[in-house]
């Protein structure tokens, strides 16, 4: 290789992005070519200087607080849209919306469930965003289930549903509805599914479903356990998983 070619490969080499064969060639060349060796030295020194130079800016705490406050405010607005918005809508739309909302309120969402839906979806989003999907990453139900013992005062059902197309990814402790809950994580294709499980005093109840912030939520009660599933997976397949969990 010529010096010019070597110089073109110097950065990928320093960044460890160069393949082994060319890395060796480059090292051989540098051994015999002081000029290229010098370039390498300079580039490496530059990297070290930047790396050690603590050039990272830290976000001021005041900014953290104000962004947090803005997010809380945004969340609040979404939950209770400002009244002024209604004035812009034509009457029939308001009436229809109100009627629909009332129906939904009566049929679907008891106040508690509305809040829980939000908590469940937030728990789901948190697990994806904070890069904290699992505490115990394992595709083995016999690893995940015992892991919860001692951490929770109940034992959640953990099933291997690989054959049905739902891969067990692991388990995690989460906190919902004012108590610690088991989060069992499954994956179907690219979709992550959080199954939140905790004991409840309610009697058995069939599946219900809702969409919240673009996520599908399915929940039901079976044998004294509340199950809440959240995912961006389509509702039909999410219900399928719900069925498999209590099969």
């Amino acid at each position: 290789m010529s010096c010019k070619e070597i110089q073109g490969l110097m950065d990928p080499y320093i960044d460890r992005e160069l393949d082994l064969v060319r890395s060796i060639e480059l090292e051989r060349h540098m051994h015999d070519c002081p000029s290229c060796a010098r370039l390498h030295e300079d580039r490496a020194a530059l990297r070290t200087a930047i790396g050690a130079g603590s050039l990272r800016y830290r976000a001021p705490d005041t900014l953290k607080k104000s962004v947090q406050a803005a997010l809380v405010e945004r969340d609040r607005q979404e939950r209770a849209p400002g009244r002024w918005r209604w004035f812009r809508l034509p009457g029939p739309v308001i009436a229809a919306t109100a009627a629909a909302a009332l129906l939904i309120a009566i049929w679907w969402v008891r106040p508690v469930e509305g809040a829980l839906q939000r908590e469940v979806v937030e728990g789901h989003i948190r697990s994806l965003m904070a890069n904290h999907l699992t505490d115990v990453p394992s595709t083995d139900q016999h690893t995940v289930k015992p892991w919860f013992a001692g951490k929770l005062d109940f034992s959640p059902t953990v099933k291997d549903l690989t054959a049905e197309g739902f891969t067990l990814v692991g388990g995690r402790l989460d906190y919902l509805d004012n108590h610690a809950v088991a989060a069992i994580v499954y994956q179907r294709r690219q979709h992550v599914i959080n199954v939140f499980v905790w004991p409840t005093s309610e009697g058995d109840r069939g599946e219900r479903a809702a969409v919240r912030q673009g996520y599908n939520v399915v929940w039901f009660v079976r044998s004294g356990m509340a199950y809440w599933l959240a995912s961006d997976l389509n509702p039909a397949e999410l219900r399928q998983l719900a069925g498999l969990l209590i099969r």
């Binding site: 976000a59 900014l63 104000s66 962004v67 803005a70 997010l71 945004r74 989003i125 994806l128 965003m129 690219q190 979709h191 992550v192 912030q213 673009g214 961006d232």
Partner: peptide
């Protein structure tokens, strides 16, 4: 940063894993 975080949370649907 403030604008980005608001956008990130509003358009979280755009995030596909």
């Amino acid at each position: 940063v403030q604008e980005s975080y608001l956008r990130a949370f509003t358009f979280f649907d755009g995030f596909r894993g």
